[in-house]
Amino acid sequence: MTTKGITYTEEFKKIFIAENVNDKLPRQIFEECRFDIDILGIHGVHSSGNICKLLHKEDGIVGLSDARNLNSGRPLTKD
């Protein structure tokens, strides 16, 4: 967690998807994983949950991986 945002682990995202498929609500999943809902805010919980579901829907389990270190920064070579 930084002042600019929150990065969830791949493990948490997988847990979220597995529990959500079993009809658990996002708030319940976050609380069971010991997140403080008062800090995140209910809007933050729902938007984070929606992002996880969208990534999973588009690319499956691979979509939940943190690929920032693979796709960030300046290109190594010029075109």
Rank of each mutant, 00 (worst) to 15 (best):
N20K: 13
N22D: 09
K24Q: 10
P26S: 08
K4R: 05
R34G: 01
F12H: 01
N20S: 14
G63D: 06
I37P: 07
P26A: 11
D38N: 15
I39R: 09
P26Q: 10
K24L: 13
E10C: 06
Y8F: 12
L64A: 07
H56S: 14
L70A: 12
N69I: 06
N50K: 14
P26I: 05
G5K: 04
S65D: 07
L54W: 08
N20R: 11
H46W: 10
I61D: 15
N22I: 04
G63T: 05
D79Y: 11
P75T: 12
F12M: 03
A67N: 10
H56W: 08
D23P: 00
L64Y: 05
K14E: 06
I37C: 05
T9H: 02
S65K: 15
K14C: 05
H46A: 06
P26F: 03
L76T: 11
I6Q: 02
D38K: 15
I17R: 01
P75C: 13
Y8I: 01
K78V: 09
D59I: 06
G5T: 03
G49W: 02
D23M: 11
E11R: 01
F16I: 02
E19C: 05
S48A: 15
S65L: 12
T7C: 01
F16R: 02
C52K: 03
D36L: 09
L64K: 04
R27P: 00
S72F: 05
N69V: 06
G5F: 00
G73W: 09
R74A: 14
E32D: 15
R34N: 13
G44P: 07
T77E: 08
D38Q: 15
F12T: 01
P26Y: 05
G60P: 03
N20D: 04
N20H: 14
D66W: 02
F12I: 02
I61A: 11
I61G: 00
L76W: 03
E58H: 12
L54K: 14
I39Y: 04
K78E: 09
H43I: 10
L70Q: 10
D66G: 06
C33A: 15
I6H: 05
I15M: 00
E31I: 14
N50T: 09
H43R: 13
I29V: 14
I15Y: 00
G73D: 13
E58P: 00
N50M: 11
G63R: 07
L54V: 10
E32S: 15
G49E: 01
H43K: 15
N20I: 02
I42S: 07
E19R: 08
I39M: 07
P75E: 11
I61H: 00
A67W: 01
